[in-house]
């Protein structure tokens, strides 16, 4: 049967079955999307304008930017930012996890204290908290270690413990803990009740129930929001300039205060913040993948794997050699999409 014959029978009842052989020989024309093309063109022009202005406007002073990007004092400031972020994240998430477990405890006092902590530290602005911690020595000039309400074993000068760095870490870490606590609590609540019951029914000790059974499953929801929070923390460290602690933002401020090259030095800081965030984002991808074990039947390939497979598939197409066994068959099929694909799932009749 041919198409011409089909057209001559337009008024006749539709044929009982399509002619697979004829249809398979026809040319396939992809549908057109004029709106999409227009939008793409507009965005491309805007993008070109941005790039060209970045290159041609010499007020950006890119030579100054590259000069200061690896300036020793900038690197020291960068190290200060990383140190602060790390210490505050450890305190924030360590204490946050403890607070979350307290919120879920059966003791009303533990529950209320955890609730009260979150309430206070979420309510007071970070910059105010930082200044308060910095003035701790005014409230308590000396800190003594000993028995509560009893004798003290040793006393130390508050300023020797809580200096600029100490105040910054305390301020950032303690306020972070309030937010982290809610993230961890939400993650734990998201784990199926049956998992708690199964662990209890097997007689697994309570601490191990939490650490081995519940938290790893909660991590799947905890990780994305936590990385979000840590990225916020990286940039939050810039608030610490109020304590004149030498982190990245304060450092570039000191430099442009001296040489007045304000914009290039702000760009130096911006580029470093971008780099830190990029590293964290890549880390987030692999962390999420790690905790997806068990939640997905098969893990999606990593970008590196996808790139490798596409290259191998292309190479085998060019050279005519068979595809290596490690490459999933879907990669070979995708590059040879022809007219016959209409019938790939239906099968030939």
């Amino acid at each position: 049967m041919s198409i011409v014959q089909d057209e001559s029978r337009v008024l006749a009842p539709p044929p009982a079955q399509t002619d697979a052989a004829t249809l398979a020989g026809l040319r396939v024309v992809p549908s057109r999307h004029p709106g999409r093309w227009l939008a793409t063109a507009v965005v491309a022009v805007l993008l070109a304008m941005v790039v060209s202005s970045l290159v041609t406007n010499d007020r950006w002073q890119w030579s100054v930017v590259t000069q200061y990007l690896t300036w020793p004092s900038v690197l020291t400031g960068l190290w200060g930012t990383l140190r602060l972020t790390f210490a505050a994240a450890v305190i924030g998430f360590g204490l946050g996890t403890v607070l979350a477990l307290m919120r879920l405890s059966r003791s009303p006092l533990l529950r209320s204290v955890a609730w009260g902590y979150t309430w206070v530290f979420r309510s007071v602005p970070l910059i105010l908290q930082l200044l308060l911690w910095y003035n701790l020595a005014y409230l308590y000039p000396e800190i003594s270690f000993g028995i509560p309400f009893g004798p003290a074993f040793t006393e130390v000068d508050t300023l020797s413990i809580v200096g600029k760095f100490g105040a910054a870490v305390l301020g950032l870490g303690l306020s972070q803990a309030a937010y982290s606590a809610e993230i961890v609590r939400a993650g734990i609540l998201g784990v199926d009740q049956g998992q708690h019951e199964a662990a209890a029914a097997l007689g697994i000790p309570r601490s191990r129930q939490q650490l081995r059974i519940v938290l790893p499953q909660a991590m799947r929801t905890i990780v994305p929001t936590s990385i979000n929070e840590i990225i916020g923390l990286v940039k939050g460290t810039s608030v610490v300039y109020v304590l004149a602690y030498g982190e990245l933002f304060y450092t570039v401020g000191v430099i442009y205060g001296r040489n007045l090259k304000v914009v290039p030095l702000l760009m130096v800081a911006a580029i470093w913040y971008l780099i830190i965030t990029t590293v964290l984002t890549v880390g987030q991808y692999y962390l999420e993948r790690h905790y997806a074990k068990g939640a997905l039947r098969t893990l999606p390939p990593t970008p590196v794997q996808r790139l490798r497979w596409s290259v191998l598939a292309a190479a085998s197409k060019v050279s005519g050699r068979p595809l290596p066994a490690s490459v999933p068959p879907s990669y070979a099929v995708r590059s040879t999409l022809g007219a016959g694909h209409l019938f790939r799932t239906g099968g030939d009749r």
Binding site: D192, G194, E197, A198, A201, G203, I204, Q217, G294
Partner: peptide, 19 residues
């Protein structure tokens, strides 16, 4: 918990640890 190790329990919804 120690007592429970002497009593096995099989749930309707399995409750295996998926990870």
């Amino acid at each position: 918990l120690r007592q429970r190790t002497r009593i096995g329990f099989v749930f309707q919804s399995f409750n295996l640890f998926p990870h």
